[in-house]
């Protein structure tokens, strides 16, 4: 797996700034994915191992709409598709919205078919159902991408932005985009959590039966949790399919099917059920990964190519030895 080292090294300061921005950007992406896990876990007590397949499917929806000018699963062509596969920003955002809506629908269908019948089963059984889903959905992704890296038509392509006042640090626009998207997503989740429905969802997470007794429709909460979770996973995947991220800024077969597993340390660190934890966990894990990738690179011949991608796991093992339920998680998740 290629290392995440495509930024140009200039001076000490600019290297540091670039590394830092990259950490934050990756941290934001991890945090979005982590939030997807946490929302689904809090809402339905399911550790969603299918996030990889779901997120890749969503990113492929985007690619099919933009690059192929079609619709996923449908034979018609897409009248909104940009000419030549490179969209203007508003048009691109419109397609992003389409992809997120489709992702949400996909999440709801999955919940309805495979998760709802499992309510009340042990946590592990539910987690394994999602492993089954991951296996079942993945071939469709591989098939749809036809063995190729697929473009999602990023408007700013591989554009960068140079900060002269920071010693000429070069910052890819995709990093900024990821940070902006994540900020919007976090704000949305924050407000959702305080909304009527969000409170209902947290109530369901805490005590399902008591929530039912209040007249909360648990099925709908499950549905919404999966819709939001799937959309967040897809959002993360789309912002990870942009140019500076390996391998070459596209929905890729090498990265997307497994990258979700790199986020497991994030939710371990943050705790499976903590929203704040997902954000901190994402930022912490990503900076471990990126800083190790940048500053230990002279040891690559010993550490092995792509060593930075296992730094999160090492960090995770370290954390768990000290705090078995993560930094923000509650110890009660023992109903296995």
């Amino acid at each position: 797996m290629p290392a995440l080292d495509s930024v140009v090294i200039a001076s000490g300061l600019s290297t540091f700034v670039q590394t830092l921005t990259k950490s934050i950007a990756l941290g934001c992406i991890y945090a979005m994915l982590g939030l997807s896990f946490v929302l689904i876990f809090k809402g339905t007590q399911v550790l969603n191992f299918a996030a990889g397949a779901i997120s890749m499917a969503g990113a492929l929806f985007m690619s099919i709409m933009i690059a192929d000018a079609g619709w996923p699963f449908l034979p018609w062509s897409n009248p909104f598709a940009p000419d030549g596969g490179r969209a203007s920003i508003p048009l691109w955002i419109l397609h992003l919205m389409f992809a997120l809506i489709l992702a949400a629908l996909m999440g709801m269908i999955i919940e309805r078919l495979a998760i709802r019948p499992m309510v009340g089963q042990p946590l592990f059984a539910m987690a394994v159902v999602t492993l089954g889903l991951e296996i079942a959905i993945r071939p469709f992704n591989l098939d749809a991408s036809a063995g190729q890296a697929r473009s999602i038509g990023v408007p700013w392509g591989n554009g960068t932005w140079t900060a002269d006042w920071l010693d000429g640090a070069v910052i890819p626009k995709s990093y900024l985009a990821a940070i902006i998207a994540a900020s919007i997503a976090f704000a949305a989740v924050y407000f959702f959590y305080r909304s009527r429905f969000g409170v209902a969802m947290r109530a369901v997470a805490f005590d399902q039966e008591a929530a039912m007794a209040q007249g909360i429709n648990v099925g709908r909460v499950f549905s919404v949790a999966w819709a939001l979770g799937a959309a967040l996973a897809v959002l993360a995947a789309i912002f990870f399919a942009m140019t500076p991220w390996p391998p070459n800024g596209a929905v890729s077969l090498e990265i997307h099917p497994i990258w979700v597993f790199r986020v497991l340390p994030v939710i371990i660190l943050g705790g499976l059920d903590s929203v704040v934890g997902a954000v901190y966990g994402g930022l912490i894990i990503a900076s471990f990964e990126i800083f190790a990738g940048q500053y230990l690179s002279q040891w690559t011949s010993i550490l092995g190519p792509g060593y930075s991608t296992i730094v999160p796991y090492l960090a995770m093992l370290g954390v768990l030895l000290v705090k078995p339920y993560g930094l923000f998680g509650t110890a009660e998740i023992r109903r296995v």
């Binding site: 592990f124 987690a127 790199r262 010993i302 991608t309 768990l320 296995v336």
Partner: peptide
């Protein structure tokens, strides 16, 4: 030390560390 789902996740980590060792050696 860790239980339940956390254990499942930790052991996933083990697999990826193993894969990386394969790449390293």
């Amino acid at each position: 030390k860790v239980r339940g789902l956390y254990l499942a996740i930790v052991t996933v980590g083990l697999v990826f560390i193993g894969l990386h060792l394969g790449r390293m050696l």
